[in-house]
Design a protein around this nucleic acid. Structure first.
Lengths: 140, 140
DNA sequence: GTTGATGCAAAATTTTTGCAAGATG
DNA sequence: CATCTTGCAAAAATTTTGCATCAAC
């Protein structure tokens, strides 16, 4: 993980710093899509010198480097997750009754999306799919 | 259009006011996903008494009433569009080279999404699909 | 007339920026 | 040691709120 971040930073001419490694690792280790404030809180536990401004600057840089992704799940702020994982590519089901976020991926969905983009003369370079759902009930 | 807004407001016990009708109409007539500031600007031209706070309050109410939808296309602010139209349901392709937003809808996509939700034990009550794309080139 | 909505100004929230000091390559 | 990055504090941008006034029902 650290190695990948360092490699990606290097390839973009970015310096490898303690805050960058820390923020990237915090997000990689989190499976709950923390927002900037929460990343800052978790980072501060390990290195109290880090500032919130740096977290914001860093997540922007890491997002540009495709190391992390940001999402907006309806609340005002951006929430982050790491893209570096064997099977990262996925989307989100948000259970509106609980706020739980469930990740999923689907090959058919992927090809349908790709074809739609193609038919419009485009190639997908980024995307965002969120399904806001409520649990199925048997009688309704 | 006005009639639908009025009916929906009434059914929720909301008063039908000049600002509400105006904001709803502005958004219904816009095909460019304006943000709150822009809705305010357009509304002000017709009624200079309206305030930005009211625009924010009104879009929230209209969104709760399912009369409009909000989106986050990567810039910081929320952008709005009206849901009241014969064939409203659609998603967005954002051309990252120009910032243009293209709307599309696709029946196969719809059923794939519905099935995915079902397989996870959910029913879709809202959703958001954005494809960030660049134009296809023949040689790359 | 009551109740809910508006406008204003002020505050809250989220994010960005200027700049001096510090760390990296 | 030149350049990029950080931390701090201050500002910007977006959105929300308190309250007196006003409008809808």
């Amino acid at each position: 993980m650290d190695a990948i971040v360092e490699e990606l930073c290097r390839s973009k001419g970015l310096k490898i710093t303690r805050p960058r490694k820390l923020v990237a690792r915090i997000i990689a280790e989190s499976d709950d899509h923390p927002d900037a404030e929460e990343v800052y809180r978790r980072a501060s536990e390990e290195d109290p010198r880090i500032s919130l401004a740096t977290v914001y600057r860093t997540v922007r840089i890491l997002e540009e480097a495709k190391i992390i992704e940001s999402h907006h799940f309806g609340d005002g702020r951006a929430r982050y997750e790491c893209t570096i994982a064997p099977e990262h590519h996925h989307h989100h089901i948000i259970d509106v009754t609980t706020g739980n976020v469930i990740e999923f991926s689907d090959d058919i969905l992927e090809s349908v999306k790709r074809k739609i983009a193609q038919d419009h003369g485009f190639e997908i370079v980024g995307e965002r799919l969120e399904l806001y759902c409520k649990p199925l009930t048997n009688n309704e």
